Amino acid sequence: MKMAFLFINAILIASLATLAYASDPSPLQDFCVAVNDANATVFVNGKICKNPNKVVAEDFFFSGLNKPGNTSNAVGSRVTAVNVNQIPGLNTLGISLVRIDYAPYGLNSPHTHPRATEILVVIEGTLYVGFVTSNPANPNLRNKLFTKYLYPGDVFVFPEGLIHFQLNVEKTNAVAFAGLSSQNPGVLTIANAVFGSYPPINPAVLTKAFQVEKNVIDQLQAQF
C-alpha cells in the first residue's frame, strides 16, 4: 500500500511540476498526436500530427512503469523512458516521465538533458545526487557542485542542460521517478559521448583536454 501511494504521488508531483515550466513551445490546439517517424512524409522540429479523426485513447496511454527495469549492466541502473516515442499524444505537450531503477550501489552516470529540466522523487532506497554548474561570469559559481542525500519521498531538481547524476549508496535496490519539461528531453551521457563517439574523437584532442597520456585515452576509448 505504501509503495502504491508513493508511486501515485511520484507521477503527480513530476507531472504537475513539469507542466509549470515547459521548455517546448506551447501547443496551439488540444492535441497533436505524433505520426511514427517511419511513416512521416515531411520532417519538422518535433513530429507531425496524426489526423485527429484517427486519434484513439491508446495514443495517450502507456503501461508498465510498475515493472522494475533490468539493471544488469556495467553501471547498475536502468532508465525506463515515457516520452513522445512511447506516448504519441505527448507531442507538443512539453512533458515526459522516466522510471529509474538502481541495483545496489548502482549509478545513473553523469549526463545532461539538453532540452529539459528534471524533477526527481525517490520511491525506495537512498540516493546520493548532484549537479554541476556551467561557466558563468561569477567565478565563485564556476563548475560548482550541488549534492544531496535523498530518501523515500524526497524531491530534487536538476536544471536544464546541466551535468547531473544519481548513485545508490545502499546494498539494496532503489527506485525513483522523474518528470522532464520536454516531450523529448534527450540524454547525453558524458563518458559515452566523449570516449565512445563514432567515429572516435582524435586522441590528440582528448589527451590535451584531460591532460593525460595517450595510453590512458586509448584505454578509455576501448571500453566504450
Rank of each mutant, 00 (worst) to 15 (best):
Leu6Asn: 11
Leu6Tyr: 09
Ile11Arg: 04
Leu12Pro: 02
Leu16Cys: 05
Pro27Thr: 00
Gln29Gly: 11
Gln29Ser: 12
Asp30Trp: 04
Asn39Gln: 13
Val42Ser: 04
Cys49Phe: 11
Lys50Arg: 15
Asn51Met: 07
Asn53Arg: 10
Lys54Ile: 02
Val55Met: 08
Asn66Trp: 15
Pro68Phe: 12
Ala74Ser: 14
Gly76Met: 09
Arg78Pro: 00
Thr80Ile: 11
Asn85Ala: 09
Leu90Asn: 10
Asn91Gln: 06
Thr92Ala: 06
Ser96Leu: 06
Arg99Ala: 07
Arg99Glu: 03
Ala103Leu: 09
Pro104Gln: 15
Gly106Leu: 09
His113Arg: 03
Pro114Gly: 00
Ile119Lys: 02
Val121Ile: 12
Gly125His: 06
Thr126Phe: 11
Thr126Ala: 07
Phe131Cys: 04
Val132Trp: 05
Val132His: 08
Asn138Thr: 12
Pro139His: 01
Leu141Pro: 03
Arg142Leu: 07
Arg142His: 07
Lys144Trp: 11
Lys148Ala: 14
Tyr149His: 10
Asp154Trp: 00
Glu160His: 00
Leu162Met: 11
Leu162Trp: 08
Phe165Gly: 05
Val175Asp: 04
Ala176Asp: 02
Leu180Pro: 00
Leu180Gln: 06
Gln183Tyr: 06
Gln183Ile: 02
Gly186Glu: 10
Val194Asn: 08
Ser197Thr: 11
Pro199Asp: 09
Val205Glu: 07
Thr207His: 03
Lys208Met: 14
Phe210Pro: 07
Gln211Asn: 14
Val216Lys: 10
Gln223Asn: 12
Gln223Phe: 14
